[in-house]
């Protein structure tokens, strides 16, 4: 698992806007689009969203990839509205709205580093301090998860090889159980290391 995720490195205008304003703009636009519920507004925003990809250096191909995932849903909307409701303009509007919003949201993801997004989450989690949550620990868990994904994947591969080597078949739980036990041990050792390294002091250390 790459730490880059879906991020596309670049220096376009969208890359230069911080994550917070981008998400806020998307939220406002999304609410407005649904509240106005106008065919031409929806189509205009869709065109803007489509043009945004080549203009900001994300590439038209990535826009098409989004649409490829979305097309069965768009088809379902179109067919349902045309056949059962008899309002094909309504169908076009709903399709345009959905495609526009998904395209715009995806553009934000493609132009924002995962680390920047996580930093934003951490800031947004700050008010949770009042209910007893610690933003530092939130950030720590998210970082720990990213570091654990390749370790889990490796444990998974090793267990699958063992499962095949022993000629076991059709008993998937016998494949998963050793992985889980391995992960539980791994978590135990990691917890110990967090305490030993003074990164997370909040632990009952005598309890093993």
């Amino acid at each position: 698992m790459s730490v880059l995720g879906l991020y596309v490195p670049g220096t376009g205008p969208l890359h230069r806007i911080p994550a917070g304003p981008k998400l806020l703009a998307l939220l406002v636009l999304g609410v407005a689009l649904i509240a106005v519920a106008d065919l031409w507004v929806a189509l205009t925003v869709l065109v803007v969203a489509l043009v945004l990809y080549p203009v900001t250096g994300l590439g038209a191909r990535r826009a098409l990839a989004v649409l490829r995932v979305l097309w069965p849903f768009l088809l379902a909307i179109g067919v349902f509205q045309a056949l059962f409701v008899g309002a094909w303009t309504e169908g076009v509007r709903l399709c345009a709205q959905l495609a526009a919003l998904v395209l715009l949201a995806n553009a934000i993801t493609l132009s924002t580093r995962v680390a920047e997004m996580l930093a934003l989450f951490e800031r947004l989690a700050r008010p949770l301090r009042r209910v007893g949550a610690d933003p530092d620990r939130v950030a720590l868990v998210l970082a720990l998860t990213i570091r654990s994904i390749p370790m889990v994947a490796a444990a998974w591969t090793a267990a699958r090889d063992g499962y095949r080597a022993r000629g076991l078949r059709n008993r998937p739980h016998l494949l998963v159980v050793p992985v889980i036990v391995h992960l539980l041990r791994m978590a135990e050792a990691t917890g110990e290391a967090l305490v030993a390294r003074g990164i997370d002091e909040d632990s009952e250390s005598a309890h093993r």
């Binding site: 720590l140 570091r147 370790m151 050792a189 290391a193 390294r197």
Partner: peptide
Amino acid sequence: FVFSDAANQIIMP
């Protein structure tokens, strides 16, 4: 403190 299995001691990505 340094453990035998470094993988578990490395915490960040």
